[in-house]
Nucleic acid binder design. Structure first.
Lengths: 163, 163
DNA sequence: GGAATACATGTATATTGATTACATGATAGG
DNA sequence: CCTATCATGTAATCAATATACATGTATTCC
């Protein structure tokens, strides 16, 4: 039982953007901050854009910013959206589709109820909650890691970088 | 986000045994009832045995039975055990291990809380709850499926059966 | 005591989903 | 027009899980 890395990274993007509400951030920049795949991050950002969480600006001096205040971004909603996006497994915790006893099975209901409780907790939190009192510490980490592995300015991701 | 099929099958085994507290059941029999891999099922049953949920009897006329009353088998405990067994991913929903902001990240706590809520619901239910009022329907399904694909008595799983 | 049945256990292969990489297109500034 | 940045589709890789295979051990029945 785990969330996809897609979801994991989506939350990291939001946390990064949340610590810098003042300015526009780029994907290569976040790639460096977290040390993760730029291509993957781009798809995640794209998805977050389609879902209305971030706004992207193309072209030179472009980048990404939160589309709404952090207090209006619900953690549960983000995670639910990210886990159910096309291509992912979705939230079917059990394989009732091929199970012969499904019509008489009470487990489905119980598991559904548990899943609802899971999201109920997440939905009680917003991005602002996650940032509250931690913005400084996060910025420190980002500053430290950004300088850690200096990349040539020209090519943001040299061949074989990620990893 | 999903539970492993291992967990899924473990619950199916318990449900099967729970509908027949009177007699001892065999793995080939359950394999037929659910149409699933006998080898996999054997490992699941073995694991359930080690965890103290079922008792197995070797040799001719051997088989499996519940080691305790269905009311003493907690759904949450079974699922937690099955998801955390060695070789499985466990219950680390996020990859905090390699995440640089983990020390300052508030998401971990929120997700842990949500996971606790998930299991809290499951732990409110026992196998007996799942069976209550459904034993008849389940037995009907088992009876129907058992006769559906008649297997040679000698070899319980002919080559290429499962699937 | 031998054959048959059933669980026990370790290893290897296959399947599946997720992740990453690659390639190319589109847009905007300077 | 050249460069930086996001957009998008396809392909390859990787990891986890599930399945298959092979063999061992115990028990019962005849």
């Amino acid at each position: 039982m785990r969330l996809t890395r897609f979801t994991d990274y989506a939350m990291r993007v939001l946390l990064y953007l949340g610590t810098r509400p003042d300015r526009i951030c780029t994907i290569p920049e976040m790639t460096r901050a977290y040390g993760i795949s730029q291509n993957h991050l781009m798809k995640i950002v794209h998805q977050l854009g389609r879902a209305g969480y971030v706004t992207s600006v193309r072209g030179r001096n472009g980048g990404i910013r939160l589309a709404r205040p952090a207090a209006m971004i619900n953690v549960g909603a983000v995670i639910r959206h990210s886990e159910t996006q096309p291509g992912a497994e979705g939230l079917a915790l059990l394989d009732c589709q091929t199970c012969r006893i499904a019509p008489a099975c009470a487990l489905t209901g119980v598991v559904d109820e548990a899943l609802a409780a899971f999201f109920a907790v997440l939905e009680r939190h917003t991005l602002a909650d996650l940032l509250h009192g931690r913005t400084g510490a996060l910025l420190d980490i980002f500053a430290a890691t950004a300088s850690e592995d200096p990349l040539p300015a020209a090519t943001c991701v040299p061949p074989g970088f990620a990893r």
